[in-house]
Design a protein around this nucleic acid. Sequence first.
DNA 1: CCGCATCCTTTTAGATACTG
DNA 2: CAGTATCTAAAAGGATGCGG
Lengths: 124, 124
Amino acid sequence: MNVIENTHPTEQCLKISQVLARIGDKWSLLIVGRLGGGPMRFGQLLRSIEDISQRMLTRTLRGLERDGLVRRTVVADLPPHVEYELTDLGRSLQAPVTVLSDWAANNLSAIDAARSSYDAADEA
Amino acid sequence: MNVIENTHPTEQCLKISQVLARIGDKWSLLIVGRLGGGPMRFGQLLRSIEDISQRMLTRTLRGLERDGLVRRTVVADLPPHVEYELTDLGRSLQAPVTVLSDWAANNLSAIDAARSSYDAADEA
DNA sequence: CCGCATCCTTTTAGATACTG
DNA sequence: CAGTATCTAAAAGGATGCGG
């Protein structure tokens, strides 16, 4: 067990924080999840995600591309279109996310229950 | 391999999104990380985390308490103080977070490199 | 010692309309 | 089809002072 005086956790946590700042927003993981099945076009993603605005999809894809998680390819068809797919780095993120996903699936109801009970106690 | 038409990923991802909405903010994981070493008092956390404002610490702790990840105990000392500690649910989150943490530690430099290279190409 | 309330500034997101 | 631009609404965050 760690004692309170240990110093390492903070550095580690700072790194997680930085990573979460990139992938932990409202849309990034949803997009990475959708892209897990293979390359998709902009319009496909837009229709597939439901509720995301065009602007947010553009912004989020740019961010993911900038961070090296997603590759953007312009296909010189007629009419031309754009394909997005995960990079190796992006795919390497899938395993950790799956672990978190499983925790989420198993504990979301517990969180919601705790929340309801907290809110109920709040009114008293 | 999944085909594009599969439907399950979206539900899963929605759950992750909801969980990330709770723990994926700027401070929650930092606090959970600090609390991993055992119970701490408000002022200890405040000094320990560096850069967090009193307001954000209060807000974040309330959120974690509401979600059942942290327990708040008022100690009737003189002067009285307050202790925070992880609940079982909070501790169960540590393992998934460690996986993500390891990924973060291993790939943060790759992300930063991708980012630099993207930004460099941007000016051309 | 703990933390709430208020005020104010900055950041982020959504709607809408328009371009190569 | 795949965006960009602009405007506005909402949320997050910091500073400060008060109260239990």
